[in-house]
Nucleic acid binder design. Sequence first.
DNA 1: AGGCTTATACTCAAATTTAGCATAACAAGC
DNA 2: GCTTGTTATGCTAAATTTGAGTATAAGCCT
Lengths: 329, 329
Amino acid sequence: MPSVSSSRSSARKQTPLSADLSAVIMAATPDEPRVLTVRATPQHLDGLPSGPLQSEHRTLEMGLRAWVAQQTELKLGYVEQLYTFGDRDRAEVASPKAGHALSIAYLALVREARPAGLAHATWRNWYDYLPWEDWREGRPKALDVISPALRTWVREGGKPLRQFREERVELTFGLESGAWTDERVLERYELLFEARLVPEALREGGQPSTPRPKLAPGQSMALDYRRMLATAIGRLRGKIKYRPVIFELMPNAFTLLELQRTVEALSGVRLHKQNFRRLVETQGLAEETGQTTTETGGRPARLVRFRREVLVERPAPGLRLPGTRRTDL
Amino acid sequence: MPSVSSSRSSARKQTPLSADLSAVIMAATPDEPRVLTVRATPQHLDGLPSGPLQSEHRTLEMGLRAWVAQQTELKLGYVEQLYTFGDRDRAEVASPKAGHALSIAYLALVREARPAGLAHATWRNWYDYLPWEDWREGRPKALDVISPALRTWVREGGKPLRQFREERVELTFGLESGAWTDERVLERYELLFEARLVPEALREGGQPSTPRPKLAPGQSMALDYRRMLATAIGRLRGKIKYRPVIFELMPNAFTLLELQRTVEALSGVRLHKQNFRRLVETQGLAEETGQTTTETGGRPARLVRFRREVLVERPAPGLRLPGTRRTDL
DNA sequence: AGGCTTATACTCAAATTTAGCATAACAAGC
DNA sequence: GCTTGTTATGCTAAATTTGAGTATAAGCCT
C-alpha cells in the first residue's frame, strides 16, 4: 500500500545502500570540449570526480560542491543534476545481494580549463571517449567500425527483433538517412552498450566471453562513467539551444567566431557563419565591449560579451542550431 | 582525493540513508490533466505513490514499476526518471543528524484514467495543486493573490536583493511583460516556496511563525510532493514539443480536436485550431483510421491514430506550440 | 427547412531561415 | 607599397514557416 510515510518505514527494512555524488565537469576552448577526469582505478581506467554523500551535506548540490571544492581549486559556475544511476549491478563485481550503489550525477560548467591542481586529474577531450560524436570534420572515422558492427547486430536478431533493432539504429545513428541528431548522445551510447560494442558491456558478470571481434573506437571508463559523460553531453547539447549556458564556458570577452567554434565543439557539427552571427544578434545574446582583437589572424574582430538582459526579455534564449552541416570555413 | 573506488569506501563511513521511489503518474482527458495521488498521511495531506528501494529491484525503474504494479492495476507506458530529491531537511521533522532521505522521482504516463482500484488513490486535476498554471480560460484568478504577494516580497528585500528578486519574478511569472512560459512550472513553484507563499515552506523547522497574511491558492501536498509534481509538469510540457509523448496519453483513435484539447490541458494554454492541425499534418504525427465519429457535436470528425513511422523520419517530432494564446473556440 | 455546432480546406501577408555574394580590414611576403 | 591570404562583417534573394483569418462542409436539433 502506498504511503507517504514509507520513507520513514523504509528505514527499518532498509537494504544495503550507498550514495555517491559524481561530477561531470566541463570546460571548452574553441576547438576542444573538455571534461575533467581522474585516473585512480586499479584497472587504469579513467573515472570522474566523485565522493560519498555525507551527513554534513545539507543538500545534494552542496555536497557535490563541497567535494569539488575540496578536490580542486575549480570554481563551479553552473551546476545541474543530471541523473541518478542505481542499477544493482553497477559495481564492477556484482555480488548477488550487494544492494544498491546509487550515484547521483551532476553536470557542472567551468570557465577556465587550466590543468587543474588536482593530483590525478586531467582535462580530456570528450571525443577521446566518444569519438563517433564529433562530426566537425565530416563523418567520423569511428563509424567505419561501428556501422558494419551494428548492421551485424541487427542481423543477429530473429525476424521480430530485427526490425526493432533496425529502427533503433536508424533512429539514433541515422546511417541510412544521414539524419544525425546531435543530442541523442546517450541513446547512441546505450545502443552500443546493448550491441556489446563497448567494453563496459562485457565487464558485467553473466555471459562468459563470447568472441567479440571488434569494439567501437574510443576510450572506456570505469563503472558507468562513460554513460554519465554521454548523458551530460546530450543534456548540454540540448540545452545550449534554448538556454544561454554556453556563456558559462566562455571567457568574459570573446569574438563571435570563438563563440561559434565553441558551440561547434560542443555540438559536434559545423555551422554557417553568417547565419550564426545573425542568430546571436537577433536573439540579443551578446553586446559590444568596444574593443577588438587582432589575434584572430585576419581582419580584427570585435570583442563581445554576454548580454544578461536577454534572460528577462526572451522566454528561451539560446542558440537553436540550424540544421546546417556545411563546412563553410 | 577523488577516487573511482570511493563508492566502495563509502560503505564504511556510511551516513544514515534511505531511498524511496516516487511516481508522478499522469493521465489526461481533453479537458483535464490528471495525476494519481494517495491520501495516507496523518495530516490529511495528499501524497504520491511511492515505496522504498529494495534489494530485489534490479534496476531503479524496475523497482518503480514493481511498486506501481503492486499497488494499482495500472499499466505504465512511458516511464522516465525525473529528479532525485535529497535535501537533508526534507523529512517533515528534521532531526539534526537524521541523515538523508533520498527520493528518486519518476514521471509515468498512462492511457486510461479510470478511478484506479487503489484504496486511497484518486485521480486529481493538476491544477487543484497548482492553479496558477492553467491559462486556458485566460489569466488564472490565483494570480490576483500571488501577484501582489510577490510584489510585497520583492519590496521586502534590500536594494541589492530587490532587483534580483524583481528579475526572477518577471522571468518566471512574466507579470509585467505578459510573457508566460508554460514550461517554467518548477521555477514558479520554487519562487513561491522561497517567498513563503506555500505552506510547505512554513512547515520547515527554524523560523517560528512569522505572521503571513496570504498564501497562494492551491492545495498543498505532503513532503515535497508538490515540488515533484511541478517538476513533472514542467518536464512534460517541455517534452511534448519535441517528442510525441502526448500519444502515450491518448486513446488509440481520437479526433484532432481531442488531441488539441489534450495538449492544451497539459500546456495550460489555448492554441489556434487551424494552425494546430497544420502542424500535426506537416509533422506527419497522425494518420487516418478511416473512421469518423459524430460524438463531437457538429460535423462528424475523422478519427486518426498516432503514426509511429514519424519516429524514424523526423529528428524531433513533437508539437512545438506556437506562441498563440488566442481563445479561438 | 433553418439555425447551431464542429470540421476542414484554403488563402495571404509577415517573419524567419537558408545559402550565398560582396566588401572591409588587418598581417606577411615580395 | 602592393599582392595575397585570412578573417570579419554587411547585405540579399529565394524558400519555408508562422500567424491569423475566411469560406465551406456536414452533422444534429427543433
